[in-house]
Design a protein around this nucleic acid. Structure first.
Lengths: 203, 203
DNA sequence: TTCATTTCTTAACATAGATCAAGTTGATTG
DNA sequence: CAATCAACTTGATCTATGTTAAGAAATGAA
């Protein structure tokens, strides 16, 4: 059964099925639920440099990136942009704070490449949790993992020098360096582009 | 119904009921489930400076602090301790990475005061998720919030000076300064005790 | 009540990384 | 094809925080 997803995923024939494939990794979902889930999502494609969320808007959706690259960021008082996340194929992106609180967001979410996404609204997701409890399990595990990742990144930012954080990222996320400008990667690492440039020279 | 919890919570007559009170804030649980949940937890009390987890052990439980104060930390190559979390009354503590992966932990979890805890094992929790789906919802929301908090702390660590992080913490967590030595608070803020001391003098 | 230990502070010096300012390279557009 | 703009690099200087070392204050134990 799941083999079909993998196959279609490889063939890229039904891009929306990638989501089911990823769900199936952590939770069991029957065929009936699959249809319920898929029908709750919309597909959209967004051009490079266009936003799916701007400051002041409530973030009403969470997005699953089928193919492409997105960043979320905010601008401080001086207008300097600070990047929160960079996400590529088969990852989720949203402003969860705004999404769950329904308050206006402090963030922008922008495409760094032409990107195809699945999206689901807050209300539709709440309904889905009730209709398909396995989905609540999936998101429990998703947030659990996201939390642990965030703690790891926090620890590295506090206690490891930027050179190491850079080296780790290069090792764990080499593709990002092919697809994302270094300015953004620097911000994601918590340093200035100048510092990143110097770190790269030394290697 | 929930009023009873609040009452008992205030009266401190049945400390284990605090957990139900906190569960009830985010999810609906019927009376039958309440018994199932409570009977899945053990109560334990641990003396100041004693560990409930040491490096190399698998963290088999997650703990809910009824009353007291715990810290989780690791020691780097130089033997310097870095604090991951400080948690007080009515919060959870564990090494989730070890807990979910069942691999040996890199952390210590130690009592900073005499502390009373509820604990549940991995296997028991997995069973509970099936028996009481509302609990899966509770933990989904718990991890969601923990993730957002962690992101906030990450952002502050990257882009705010230590003085601000200190001021924020003093405002949001004044009680911690009464109960936790400054060495630990410094580490939690990502700075040395010397720096914290300097920051405090300037105010 | 005294001694030992832990916690906290202070000062002098060192350093990673920021800031400012200027350039180079490469990509995009009219 | 030139012109503009975005991405990246480099150097000089500055600053927040770390490091080392010492001592004071507070706490706990004998």
């Amino acid at each position: 059964m799941y083999l079909i997803y993998i196959f279609e995923y490889m063939e890229n024939k039904r891009p929306d099925h990638k989501l089911l494939y990823y769900l199936s990794k952590w939770t069991k979902i029957n065929e009936c639920d699959e249809h319920t889930i898929l029908s709750s999502f919309d597909t959209l494609t967004i051009k490079k440099k266009k936003d799916i969320l701007v400051v002041g808007e409530v973030c009403n959706h969470i997005y699953f990136i089928i193919k492409g690259c997105m960043r979320s960021y905010y601008a401080d008082e001086k207008g300097i942009e600070h990047i929160f996340q960079i996400r590529m194929d088969n990852n989720w992106i949203s402003d969860l704070e705004s999404f769950f609180s329904k308050k206006p967001s402090n963030y922008y979410i922008e495409a760094l490449e032409e990107t195809t996404l699945l999206r689901i609204s807050y209300d539709r997701l709440e309904k889905l949790y009730v209709e398909v409890p396995a989905l609540e399990r999936y998101f429990r595990i998703l947030f659990q993992k996201a939390y642990l990742n965030s703690l790891k990144r926090l620890n590295a930012t506090m206690w490891e020098p930027a050179t190491e954080r850079y080296a780790d990222m290069l090792k764990e996320n080499p593709e990002m360096f092919q697809r994302v400008p270094l300015v953004y990667i620097a911000s994601y690492l918590g340093i200035t582009p100048e510092s990143l440039s110097r770190i790269r020279r030394q290697k």
